[in-house]
Every structure is written in structure tokens, then in C-alpha cells.
Amino acid sequence: MLELRRISKIYNPGTVTELCLFDNFSFKVADGEFVSVVGSNGSGKTSMLNIICGSIPVSGGEVLIDGKNINSLREYKRYRMIGRVYQNPAAGTCPDMTILENMSLADNKGKRYGLSFGVNNSRKNYYKEQLSSLGLGLEDKLDVKLGALSGGQRQAVSLLMATLTPIDFLILDEHTAALDPRTAEIIMELTNKIVKEKKLTAIMVTHNLRYAVEYGTRLVMMDKGNIILDKSGKEKQDVKVEDILDIFNKISIECGN
């Protein structure tokens, strides 16, 4: 159970560019939920993810995991229970290291990074198995550097790496936005499969309304730091892309766009 309780977030406080994004913002995600979050630029989607992960501090309110306040928990410690995939395919992997080395790094999450050999050869087959599930032929490229792969391939490896070890939450930050439509489709299918197989609690921010409607168990729409639509279960299944698009247009008209 993840909860944001009465969060406020003010950017550049005390300056002319002061911007109050969240004021008394509350949000709850139950275990096992797969939440898709949509909203226009600047609506606070990515800020919300950053607040959950501790990448940016809050101005007020509490971030709770299973009822425990984690406000003072530093970012890197929060990632021990969170896996995150970024919009930029380069963010989740090491470009100068090979696929095998990257997988080994991710596989060791939660354990000691000591002076034993980085690559455990007995795990090689397991990595190959995992990589072949992507269907991209990466299992034969274990010794290729990540930097030499395409954006889609890198994102697929990032996703795999983020979910290789047991985690409680999966955070997907527009992870298909930088990919071509076909690759985005593959990555999205893969995400859905992994979330279901590993029974993860996931929050996915996306600009693709179809993905938001098709995937996930709950749909949330944000605008100016508020949740303006929140549907789950049966209600969520009945939502159509057109409905969401309508709301989007209304908001835009209010803004004068």
C-alpha cells in the first residue's frame, strides 16, 4: 500500500517563478493495482513519481508505504523496494557495459557489491532465458555493449533489469514515449506480462491514451496538481479513448489553448 497524504509541493519558493503544483494532494495505491496516469504537460504526473521515489523533496505532507512515513528515507534507499523505468532508454542501463554485465549488476540488487566476480557464470542461462522472453534476439548478444543497441532494445533491457529482483513497486515514467509505435507496442505488452506474472503494484505515466485505457486496473487523470478522474474495476473497463479525449479537450479549452 502506497499513500501520498496531503502533499504540497512548491517549486522555487520565495521567488518570482514560484509555482505551487500540489496543494493538499492525496493519492492511494492498493497492493496489486496497475494504475495508468494520464494528464497534460505540467499536470504533475512526473512530479508525483519523483515525490514517491524521493528524487525531489516535498514542501509538506507525508509519503507512506504500508502506513509507515518514508519522508526522510533517502532516494537510493527507497529504490530497494522500487523499480523504475524512465522515458529515456539510456537512463536505466550502463552504455559502456555489456548486456551480461548490466544484467549481473541488476541481478545483484539488494545484495552486497563486494570483491567477488561481477559475472556469475552459473546465472548466464537464466539471463539468456529472460532475454529470449523479450523476443528481440538479445540472448545471443550477451557480450554486446548496451550503447550499441537501439532505443527499443535498451528500453526492453531496462525493463527487465528493473524487475529482475523482487520489488514492491514498479514505476513507469512515460517509458514508451521515446520509442517508435511498433517497439512501443512490444514494450507495453512486455510490461503488462511482467506486471501480471510478478504480481507487481505498478504506476504508469503515459501520454498514450490507448495504453492507459487498454492496460492496467485503474485509470487516473491529473490536471494542475489535482486528480480529476479516477476509475477502477468495472468502471475502468467501460472507459473509452474518446471519453478521455473529450475531457482532455475540455481542459485545454478552459486553459485557452
Binding site: 537510493y76 523499480g83 536505466g92 539488494g110 528493473a162
Partner: peptide
């Protein structure tokens, strides 16, 4: 090596 290459990854690995 990862720290020099992509610091974000190290943080993501909980370190």
C-alpha cells in the same frame, strides 16, 4: 564503472 557511466542506475540499484 556504473557510477561514472550512469549514476542514476546505481541509485536505482539501491546504492
Amino acid at each position: 564503472r556504473a557510477t561514472g557511466n550512469n549514476e542514476m542506475l546505481v541509485v536505482s540499484l539501491g546504492r
